[in-house]
């Protein structure tokens, strides 16, 4: 049975802000339900731009992005972004206390029909071997790795269909990086036939661990490795 295409980019292109050269051009990509992709490429090859374009966080000059076969514009964008969450390399917490930060996602209009579930978070922390006191700490006191874990919990508690992870472990120690991988895996394994992810990484081992499909960006164009 062919898998459902969740997200599709058709010939998307993006120019530099000054209007000059193309940073990304003619990139087409289909992400099916169940797929886990690793994306690599040199710095400046356009990985972040591609992910941000897929999440519709940046305007694109050419091409289109489709979610389940439909183009996403205007009022449908927030609903789309709840399902396809982009995670930045440096996590930013929006509230001053960790638990408030996790709750903040539910104050957004698009998530009002859902409720914060403390027991779920506590369970995850237990699985990751983290102290539940983390929730009471001040956001500004967290290490980069702890903040990244909180940011990923903040995203996966919303039960998105897809995660776009932009080098989430690049700056982390191996243990925390492993915790991040496990947390993402917990989310994925809840519905492995319906979820998908794109993970930007420079680490070939991590890339093999987390993904079944390997992609490389070279000078703004996408190259697929044999799978």
């Amino acid at each position: 049975m062919p898998q459902q295409v969740l997200l599709e980019a058709r010939q998307i292109g993006r120019r530099a802000a000054s209007g000059g050269r193309w940073l990304l051009r003619g990139v087409s990509l289909r992400i099916e339900a169940g797929q886990r992709m690793a994306l690599s490429g040199l710095s400046g090859s356009g990985k972040t731009l591609l992910l941000r374009s897929l999440a519709r966080l940046d305007p694109i000059e050419e091409g289109q992005v489709f979610w389940r076969g439909q183009s996403i514009r205007g009022v449908r964008v927030p609903e789309f972004r709840r399902r396809v969450i982009y995670l930045h390399q440096r996590a930013t917490l929006v509230e001053s206390r960790v638990e408030d930060d996790l709750r903040a996602a539910f104050h957004l209009r698009v998530n009002r029909d859902r409720q914060f579930c403390l027991s779920k978070i506590l369970r995850w922390l237990q699985w990751l071997g983290r102290d539940p006191d983390l929730l009471q700490r001040r956001s500004s006191d967290l290490s980069g790795g702890e903040a990244q874990l909180v940011a990923i919990m903040r995203a996966v508690q919303l039960e998105p269909d897809m995660l776009l992870l932009d080098e989430p472990t690049a700056a982390l120690d191996p243990q925390t990086a492993e915790a991040v991988e496990r947390l993402v895996d917990i989310w994925y394994q809840q519905q492995p036939d319906h979820r998908a992810l794109v993970w930007v990484t420079h680490n070939p081992e991590q890339s093999r661990r987390i993904a079944g499909r390997q992609l490389t960006l070279q000078q703004g164009a996408l190259i697929e490795a044999d799978s």
């Binding site: 999440a55 966080l57 972004r81 969450i85 929006v94 996602a105 209009r109 698009v110 903040r154």
Partner: peptide, 16 residues
């Protein structure tokens, strides 16, 4: 800027 971008990525409207 990072805060604004984070909220947008979580599904915030531009106003939120």
């Amino acid at each position: 800027r990072d805060r604004v971008e984070t909220l947008l990525a979580l599904g915030a409207t531009r106003w939120e």
